[in-house]
């Protein structure tokens, strides 16, 4: 099965190289990095490290970048598409467990969950994420233990069905919405998130979570 790892990266020049190299080392030969209009050397670092690097000439947001990577992977005939974070907070060793249920045809999507296993998220982060879980349950009717986890695996079929229109962080909720609406079979898999000072600084602020929630309600009303 042709597996593509898609990484959206915005100003991740410091980390992206080691993330790509680690993926290649364990044998994932198709790593696609979408440089989302970074002002640093993300693009050159990623391509030097051996990834297929695509470049948005202006910043369009993580949702837009992931969709670009997914489009590319589909064009190349990918059977499985893994979305992975650029900042090194996901563990490469979690990938096989994430892929297995999709590869076997049991489900079409797997979603990484940091709360199914033991969680090491900082308290405030936990609180906000729990809020997001309840919020998503109300809005999309999808029951999850973690909602804004960028670690996902899509079957080709699922990747073709799901279309990310929300360019920015709202895409994480939009994907869940699409899964619920199109009745795509999914499963959550426990994954470990490495909270480093780096990833914490790059992560979403509590304030931004509120903005995301408002935007989600808005798009629900307008649709």
């Amino acid at each position: 099965m042709k597996t593509y790892i898609v990484i959206a990266a915005f100003n991740e020049g410091k980390k992206i190289g080691s993330v790509v190299k680690e993926l290649l080392k364990v044998g994932y030969s198709n790593v696609v990095v979408v440089d989302d209009g970074s002002s640093d050397n993300t693009y050159s670092v990623a391509s030097k490290a051996g990834a297929v690097a695509l470049q948005h000439i202006v910043n369009r947001g993580q949702g837009a970048a992931l969709q670009t990577g997914i489009d590319y992977a589909l064009e190349q005939g990918a059977d499985l598409i893994v979305t992975f974070d650029a900042d090194g907070q996901h563990c490469v060793s979690d990938i096989p467990a994430m892929i297995k249920p999709v590869a076997s045809g049991e489900v079409d999507v797997t979603l990484g969950s940091r709360f199914l296993g033991k969680s090491n998220a900082p308290f405030l982060k936990k609180l906000v994420l729990k809020g997001g879980i309840i919020f998503t349950r109300l809005l999309s009717g999808i029951k999850l233990t973690d909602v804004h986890n960028g670690f996902r695996v899509f079957s080709r079929k699922a990747a073709q069905k799901i279309r990310i229109n929300q360019d920015r962080m709202e895409h994480a909720s939009e994907i869940l919405d699409e899964i619920a609406r199109k009745k795509i079979k999914y499963k959550e898999i426990p994954v470990t998130i490495k909270y480093s000072e780096y990833s914490k600084a790059k992560g979403q602020s509590v304030f931004n979570s509120i903005r995301i929630a408002l935007k989600m309600i808005y798009s629900k009303v307008v649709r």
Partner: peptide, 17 residues
């Protein structure tokens, strides 16, 4: 417009490759 710009940027990224 936002959505159109994204489409254009995406297309450019994919074509370049």
């Amino acid at each position: 417009l936002r959505s159109d710009i994204t489409t254009v940027v995406r297309e450019m990224a994919l074509r370049k490759k």
